[in-house]
């Protein structure tokens, strides 16, 4: 069946990991089962729900649409790598403050998708956020507070960036 295992190496949340996997192993399963990073969830089997979204080389990708071997050599960021309690990413902070989650199951994927969205459009309108979240499904929130959270995160991130620039200029 062509099940001979294959070696892969990925850099996940800054740490290099090597593993032997079946060629058919989905990246989502690899992240969860082999690497033990269970923050990335799986919500469907047809790549519609986006719960498994992670960043692969900076791009938001549904990790159930990639085989692990396709991610060989890439840099992956999961929700665990986004930020931790005490040092939350502005997206996490905003989802908390704006009540952008209820059951929290889709949340890691939605946040990763939103991070991807803000990379392309750092100052999106409500409508652009709603369009930009086409790839994810949330059954709990009705999306309104997710939109508020992403908007708030965008603002926080712009402010931080402005501060960083300011500090940089002062140093010059």
């Amino acid at each position: 069946m062509g099940n001979e295992k294959v070696n892969v190496t990925v850099k996940i949340n800054g740490n290099e990991k090597r593993a032997e996997v079946e060629p058919r192993t989905l990246l989502a399963h690899f992240i969860r089962d082999n690497l033990g990073l269970t923050g990335t969830h799986i919500g469907c089997d047809t790549s519609q729900c986006g719960a498994c979204t992670v960043l692969v080389d900076g791009q938001a990708v549904k990790s159930c649409t990639l085989l692990t071997v396709q991610a060989d050599g890439s840099e992956i960021t999961t929700v665990e790598g986004l930020g931790q309690v005490g040092n939350l990413h502005p997206m996490q902070q905003s989802f908390w403050e704006k009540h952008g989650l209820q059951c929290g199951y889709c949340t890691p994927g939605v946040m990763m998708a939103a991070v991807g969205l803000l990379q392309q459009n750092p100052n999106p309108s409500d409508e652009e956020i709603r369009e930009g979240l086409e790839g994810v499904i949330c059954r709990c929130t009705g999306y309104q507070f997710i939109v508020d959270a992403v908007k708030h995160a965008a603002q926080l991130m712009r402010e931080t960036e402005a501060e960083v620039q300011l500090v940089g200029e002062e140093r010059l």
């Binding site: 269970t38 923050g39 929700v79 989802f95 989650l101 929290g104 199951y105 890691p108």
Partner: peptide, 16 residues
């Protein structure tokens, strides 16, 4: 919410 910090950082404990 009290329950959010674990859920936004990937430390929830769902069945799978």
């Amino acid at each position: 919410r009290k329950e959010d910090p674990k859920l936004i950082t990937g430390h929830g404990s769902f069945a799978d």
